Amino acid sequence: MIKRQIHYFLTAVLFFTRIPCPKWVDHSGDILNKSSRYFSLVGILIGSIAALTFYSASFIFPPNISILLSMISSVWITGAFHEDGFADVCDGFGGGWTKEKILIIMKDSRLGTFGVIGLISILGLKYLSLSELNNNSVNIVIAIISGHSVSRTIATILLFTHEYVRDNDSSKVKPTTKQMSTKSLIISILFGIVPLFFFNNYYVLLVLVPLLLTYLYLGRFFKKWIGGQTGDCAGALQQVAEVIFYLSLLIVWKLF
Protein backbone atom coordinates (compact mmCIF):
# COMPACT_ATOMS: atom_id res chain seq x y z
CA MET A 1 0.00 0.00 0.00
CA ILE A 2 2.71 2.48 1.01
CA LYS A 3 4.90 1.42 -1.91
CA ARG A 4 1.98 2.01 -4.27
CA GLN A 5 1.43 5.53 -2.91
CA ILE A 6 5.14 6.27 -3.24
CA HIS A 7 4.89 5.10 -6.84
CA TYR A 8 1.97 7.48 -7.45
CA PHE A 9 3.84 10.40 -5.89
CA LEU A 10 7.06 9.73 -7.81
CA THR A 11 5.02 9.43 -10.99
CA ALA A 12 3.67 12.93 -10.39
CA VAL A 13 7.21 14.15 -9.67
CA LEU A 14 8.49 12.50 -12.87
CA PHE A 15 5.71 13.98 -14.98
CA PHE A 16 5.84 17.54 -13.67
CA THR A 17 9.51 18.10 -12.86
CA ARG A 18 13.06 17.43 -14.00
CA ILE A 19 13.87 15.74 -10.69
CA PRO A 20 15.41 12.28 -11.35
CA CYS A 21 13.27 9.32 -10.27
CA PRO A 22 13.99 5.56 -10.09
CA LYS A 23 13.81 3.73 -13.43
CA TRP A 24 10.82 1.67 -12.28
CA VAL A 25 8.68 4.82 -12.06
CA ASP A 26 6.57 5.49 -15.15
CA HIS A 27 3.66 7.73 -16.10
CA SER A 28 1.30 5.37 -17.89
CA GLY A 29 -2.26 6.61 -18.21
CA ASP A 30 -3.66 4.57 -15.30
CA ILE A 31 -0.83 5.40 -12.90
CA LEU A 32 -0.87 9.07 -13.87
CA ASN A 33 -4.60 9.32 -13.21
CA LYS A 34 -4.06 7.92 -9.71
CA SER A 35 -1.04 10.13 -9.11
CA SER A 36 -3.21 13.23 -9.52
CA ARG A 37 -3.88 13.13 -5.77
CA TYR A 38 -0.28 14.24 -5.26
CA PHE A 39 -0.21 17.12 -7.75
CA SER A 40 -0.54 19.67 -4.93
CA LEU A 41 2.17 17.90 -2.94
CA VAL A 42 4.44 18.23 -5.97
CA GLY A 43 3.50 21.91 -5.87
CA ILE A 44 4.80 22.07 -2.29
CA LEU A 45 8.03 20.43 -3.47
CA ILE A 46 8.46 22.87 -6.36
CA GLY A 47 7.48 25.82 -4.19
CA SER A 48 9.97 24.74 -1.53
CA ILE A 49 12.78 24.67 -4.08
CA ALA A 50 11.79 28.12 -5.32
CA ALA A 51 11.46 29.44 -1.76
CA LEU A 52 14.85 27.99 -0.80
CA THR A 53 16.37 29.66 -3.84
CA PHE A 54 14.89 33.00 -2.80
CA TYR A 55 15.97 32.62 0.82
CA SER A 56 19.52 31.58 -0.06
CA ALA A 57 19.92 34.29 -2.68
CA SER A 58 18.62 36.95 -0.29
CA PHE A 59 21.82 36.65 1.77
CA ILE A 60 23.78 37.87 -1.25
CA PHE A 61 21.42 39.79 -3.54
CA PRO A 62 18.66 42.39 -3.13
CA PRO A 63 15.07 41.06 -2.78
CA ASN A 64 14.08 41.79 -6.40
CA ILE A 65 16.98 39.76 -7.80
CA SER A 66 16.32 36.96 -5.29
CA ILE A 67 12.67 36.81 -6.40
CA LEU A 68 13.70 36.63 -10.05
CA LEU A 69 16.13 33.81 -9.30
CA SER A 70 13.36 32.03 -7.42
CA MET A 71 11.06 32.27 -10.43
CA ILE A 72 13.80 31.01 -12.74
CA SER A 73 14.41 28.03 -10.46
CA SER A 74 10.72 27.02 -10.54
CA VAL A 75 10.61 27.33 -14.33
CA TRP A 76 13.75 25.24 -14.67
CA ILE A 77 12.69 22.51 -12.25
CA THR A 78 9.37 22.08 -14.07
CA GLY A 79 10.75 22.50 -17.58
CA ALA A 80 8.29 25.40 -18.00
CA PHE A 81 5.54 22.76 -18.04
CA HIS A 82 2.67 25.00 -16.94
CA GLU A 83 4.04 28.11 -18.62
CA ASP A 84 4.00 26.21 -21.90
CA GLY A 85 0.36 25.26 -21.32
CA PHE A 86 -0.53 28.86 -20.55
CA ALA A 87 1.15 30.09 -23.73
CA ASP A 88 -0.64 27.43 -25.81
CA VAL A 89 -3.99 28.47 -24.33
CA CYS A 90 -3.25 32.13 -25.14
CA ASP A 91 -2.44 31.21 -28.72
CA GLY A 92 -5.32 28.77 -29.11
CA PHE A 93 -8.12 30.90 -27.69
CA GLY A 94 -6.60 34.11 -29.03
CA GLY A 95 -6.34 32.87 -32.62
CA GLY A 96 -9.05 30.23 -32.92
CA TRP A 97 -12.79 30.73 -33.27
CA THR A 98 -13.95 27.12 -33.38
CA LYS A 99 -13.22 24.14 -31.14
CA GLU A 100 -11.28 22.37 -33.88
CA LYS A 101 -9.15 25.41 -34.69
CA ILE A 102 -8.41 26.14 -31.03
CA LEU A 103 -7.27 22.55 -30.41
CA ILE A 104 -5.12 22.56 -33.55
CA ILE A 105 -3.39 25.80 -32.53
CA MET A 106 -2.79 24.56 -28.97
CA LYS A 107 -1.25 21.39 -30.37
CA ASP A 108 1.22 23.41 -32.47
CA SER A 109 4.63 23.55 -30.78
CA ARG A 110 5.36 26.98 -32.24
CA LEU A 111 4.82 30.03 -30.04
CA GLY A 112 2.60 32.77 -31.45
CA THR A 113 2.03 36.43 -30.67
CA PHE A 114 -0.71 35.78 -28.12
CA GLY A 115 1.50 33.27 -26.33
CA VAL A 116 4.47 35.64 -26.17
CA ILE A 117 2.35 38.52 -24.85
CA GLY A 118 0.63 36.19 -22.39
CA LEU A 119 3.92 34.87 -20.98
CA ILE A 120 5.40 38.35 -20.62
CA SER A 121 2.25 39.52 -18.85
CA ILE A 122 1.87 36.56 -16.47
CA LEU A 123 5.56 36.43 -15.53
CA GLY A 124 5.67 40.20 -15.11
CA LEU A 125 2.63 40.14 -12.83
CA LYS A 126 4.10 37.27 -10.83
CA TYR A 127 7.39 39.12 -10.34
CA LEU A 128 5.78 42.44 -9.40
CA SER A 129 3.27 40.90 -7.00
CA LEU A 130 5.98 38.86 -5.24
CA SER A 131 8.11 41.98 -5.02
CA GLU A 132 5.27 43.82 -3.26
CA LEU A 133 4.81 40.89 -0.87
CA ASN A 134 8.40 41.18 0.28
CA ASN A 135 7.73 42.78 3.69
CA ASN A 136 9.79 40.03 5.31
CA SER A 137 11.56 36.87 4.19
CA VAL A 138 9.40 34.46 6.19
CA ASN A 139 6.16 35.68 4.62
CA ILE A 140 7.50 35.53 1.09
CA VAL A 141 8.90 32.02 1.64
CA ILE A 142 5.48 30.80 2.83
CA ALA A 143 3.78 32.73 0.01
CA ILE A 144 5.90 31.08 -2.67
CA ILE A 145 5.27 27.58 -1.31
CA SER A 146 1.56 28.28 -0.86
CA GLY A 147 1.24 29.82 -4.32
CA HIS A 148 2.61 26.71 -5.98
CA SER A 149 0.53 24.29 -3.91
CA VAL A 150 -2.86 26.01 -3.89
CA SER A 151 -2.71 26.92 -7.59
CA ARG A 152 -2.20 23.25 -8.45
CA THR A 153 -5.17 22.41 -6.25
CA ILE A 154 -7.33 24.74 -8.33
CA ALA A 155 -6.02 23.06 -11.49
CA THR A 156 -6.88 19.60 -10.16
CA ILE A 157 -10.44 20.74 -9.48
CA LEU A 158 -10.71 21.53 -13.19
CA LEU A 159 -9.42 18.03 -14.02
CA PHE A 160 -12.11 16.57 -11.75
CA THR A 161 -15.09 18.60 -12.94
CA HIS A 162 -14.44 19.03 -16.66
CA GLU A 163 -14.28 16.39 -19.34
CA TYR A 164 -11.02 15.85 -21.20
CA VAL A 165 -11.73 16.81 -24.81
CA ARG A 166 -8.65 15.76 -26.77
CA ASP A 167 -8.19 12.19 -28.00
CA ASN A 168 -5.01 10.53 -26.76
CA ASP A 169 -3.90 9.90 -30.34
CA SER A 170 -3.90 13.63 -31.08
CA SER A 171 -2.46 14.78 -27.78
CA LYS A 172 0.78 16.72 -27.95
CA VAL A 173 1.93 15.33 -24.60
CA LYS A 174 1.18 11.69 -23.84
CA PRO A 175 0.06 10.35 -21.46
CA THR A 176 -2.03 12.89 -19.60
CA THR A 177 -4.51 12.94 -16.73
CA LYS A 178 -7.99 12.25 -18.09
CA GLN A 179 -9.83 11.06 -15.00
CA MET A 180 -9.66 11.96 -11.32
CA SER A 181 -11.43 10.25 -8.44
CA THR A 182 -13.19 12.04 -5.58
CA LYS A 183 -10.67 10.57 -3.15
CA SER A 184 -7.76 11.95 -5.18
CA LEU A 185 -9.40 15.39 -5.32
CA ILE A 186 -9.87 15.52 -1.54
CA ILE A 187 -6.26 14.47 -0.91
CA SER A 188 -5.02 17.07 -3.39
CA ILE A 189 -7.10 19.82 -1.73
CA LEU A 190 -5.76 18.94 1.71
CA PHE A 191 -2.15 19.06 0.53
CA GLY A 192 -2.85 22.29 -1.34
CA ILE A 193 -4.21 24.32 1.57
CA VAL A 194 -1.84 23.05 4.31
CA PRO A 195 0.83 25.74 3.65
CA LEU A 196 -1.77 28.49 4.19
CA PHE A 197 -1.93 27.64 7.90
CA PHE A 198 1.70 28.64 8.35
CA PHE A 199 0.76 32.29 7.93
CA ASN A 200 0.23 34.16 11.20
CA ASN A 201 -2.85 35.85 9.74
CA TYR A 202 -5.70 33.40 9.17
CA TYR A 203 -7.53 36.00 7.10
CA VAL A 204 -5.23 34.64 4.40
CA LEU A 205 -7.82 31.89 3.90
CA LEU A 206 -9.98 34.55 2.23
CA VAL A 207 -7.74 34.21 -0.84
CA LEU A 208 -9.59 30.97 -1.56
CA VAL A 209 -12.62 33.03 -2.66
CA PRO A 210 -10.99 34.76 -5.67
CA LEU A 211 -9.23 31.49 -6.51
CA LEU A 212 -12.53 29.64 -6.70
CA LEU A 213 -14.01 32.48 -8.76
CA THR A 214 -11.04 32.17 -11.12
CA TYR A 215 -11.72 28.44 -11.47
CA LEU A 216 -15.42 29.03 -12.13
CA TYR A 217 -14.74 31.69 -14.76
CA LEU A 218 -12.04 29.83 -16.68
CA GLY A 219 -13.87 26.51 -16.30
CA ARG A 220 -16.96 28.06 -17.85
CA PHE A 221 -14.82 29.71 -20.54
CA PHE A 222 -13.16 26.42 -21.52
CA LYS A 223 -16.50 24.62 -21.46
CA LYS A 224 -18.08 27.19 -23.75
CA TRP A 225 -15.36 27.12 -26.40
CA ILE A 226 -14.04 23.55 -26.44
CA GLY A 227 -16.53 21.60 -24.32
CA GLY A 228 -14.14 20.75 -21.49
CA GLN A 229 -10.45 20.89 -20.72
CA THR A 230 -7.04 19.73 -21.92
CA GLY A 231 -3.72 19.53 -20.11
CA ASP A 232 -2.90 22.98 -21.50
CA CYS A 233 -6.07 24.38 -19.93
CA ALA A 234 -5.11 22.96 -16.54
CA GLY A 235 -1.61 24.41 -16.91
CA ALA A 236 -3.02 27.80 -17.82
CA LEU A 237 -5.37 27.74 -14.84
CA GLN A 238 -2.43 26.90 -12.55
CA GLN A 239 -0.47 29.90 -13.79
CA VAL A 240 -3.40 32.29 -13.52
CA ALA A 241 -4.37 30.94 -10.08
CA GLU A 242 -0.82 31.39 -8.80
CA VAL A 243 -0.80 35.05 -9.80
CA ILE A 244 -4.33 35.58 -8.44
CA PHE A 245 -3.13 34.08 -5.16
CA TYR A 246 -0.26 36.58 -4.84
CA LEU A 247 -2.47 39.52 -5.81
CA SER A 248 -5.13 38.39 -3.33
CA LEU A 249 -2.52 38.18 -0.58
CA LEU A 250 -1.64 41.82 -1.22
CA ILE A 251 -5.30 42.80 -0.81
CA VAL A 252 -5.82 40.69 2.33
CA TRP A 253 -2.67 42.03 4.01
CA LYS A 254 -3.66 45.58 3.15
CA LEU A 255 -7.17 45.20 4.61
CA PHE A 256 -6.37 43.03 7.62
Score class of each variant (00 low, 15 high):
Lys174Phe: 11
Lys174Ala: 10
Lys174Asp: 04
Lys174Ile: 12
Lys174Val: 13
Lys174Asn: 14
Pro175Asn: 07
Pro175Lys: 07
Pro175Thr: 06
Pro175Gly: 07
Thr176His: 13
Thr176Gly: 13
Thr176Gln: 11
Thr177Gln: 10
Thr177Ser: 10
Thr177Lys: 13
Thr177Arg: 12
Thr177Glu: 06
Thr177His: 02
Lys178Ala: 04
Lys178Cys: 09
Gln179Ser: 14
Gln179Thr: 15
Met180Asp: 04
Met180Arg: 04
Met180His: 06
Ser181Val: 08
Thr182Ser: 14
Thr182Lys: 13
Thr182His: 05
Thr182Gln: 09
Lys183Gln: 11
Ser184Met: 05
Ser184Gly: 04
Leu185Lys: 05
Leu185Trp: 02
Leu185Arg: 03
Ile186Pro: 02
Ile186Tyr: 08
Ile187Gln: 01
Ile187Met: 05
Ile187Pro: 00
Ser188Arg: 00
Ile189His: 00
Ile189Trp: 00
Ile189Pro: 00
Ile189Arg: 01
Ile189Ala: 08
Leu190Asp: 03
Leu190Tyr: 02
Leu190Ser: 13
Phe191Trp: 12
Phe191Lys: 00
Gly192Ala: 08
Gly192Asn: 04
Ile193Val: 15
Ile193Ala: 03
Ile193Met: 04
Val194Asp: 02
Val194His: 00
Val194Thr: 14
Pro195Ser: 06
Pro195Gly: 07
Pro195Ile: 01
Leu196Met: 11
Phe197Ile: 13
Phe197Val: 11
Phe197Glu: 07
Phe197Lys: 07
Phe197Gly: 05
Phe197Pro: 04
Phe199Pro: 03
Phe199Asn: 06
Phe199Arg: 07
Asn200Pro: 05
Asn200Val: 09
Asn201Phe: 11
Asn201Cys: 12
Asn201Thr: 11
Tyr202Glu: 10
Tyr202Arg: 14
Tyr202Lys: 15
Val204Pro: 01
Val204Lys: 01
Val204Asp: 00
Val204Glu: 01
Val204Arg: 01
Leu205Ser: 09
Leu205Cys: 10
Leu206Met: 15
Leu206Ile: 15
Leu206Phe: 15
Leu206Tyr: 15
Leu206Cys: 14
Val207Cys: 11
Val207Phe: 03
Val207His: 02
Leu208Glu: 08
Leu208Thr: 09
Leu208His: 09
Val209His: 09
Val209Asp: 08
Val209Trp: 09
Pro210Leu: 06
Pro210Cys: 07
Pro210Met: 05
Leu211Phe: 08
Leu212Cys: 10
Leu212His: 05
Leu212Asn: 03
Leu213Glu: 03
Leu213Arg: 06
Leu213Val: 11
Leu213His: 06
Thr214Ile: 05
Thr214His: 02
Tyr215Gly: 01
Leu216Asp: 08
Leu216Met: 13
Leu216Arg: 13
Leu216Glu: 12
Tyr217Leu: 14
Tyr217Arg: 09
Leu218Pro: 00
Gly219Asn: 08
Gly219Trp: 00
Gly219Ser: 14
Gly219Pro: 02
Arg220Glu: 12
Arg220Met: 10
Arg220Tyr: 14
Phe221Ile: 04
Phe221Thr: 03
Phe221Trp: 06
Phe221Glu: 02
Phe222Gly: 06
Phe222Ser: 06
Phe222Ile: 09
Phe222Gln: 05
Lys223Arg: 12
Lys223Met: 11
Lys223Ser: 15
Lys224Ser: 12
Lys224Leu: 11
Lys224Pro: 01
Trp225Gln: 07
Trp225Pro: 00
Ile226Pro: 00
Ile226Met: 02
Gly227Lys: 05
Gly227Asp: 07
Gly227Glu: 06
Gly228Ala: 10
Gly228Tyr: 05
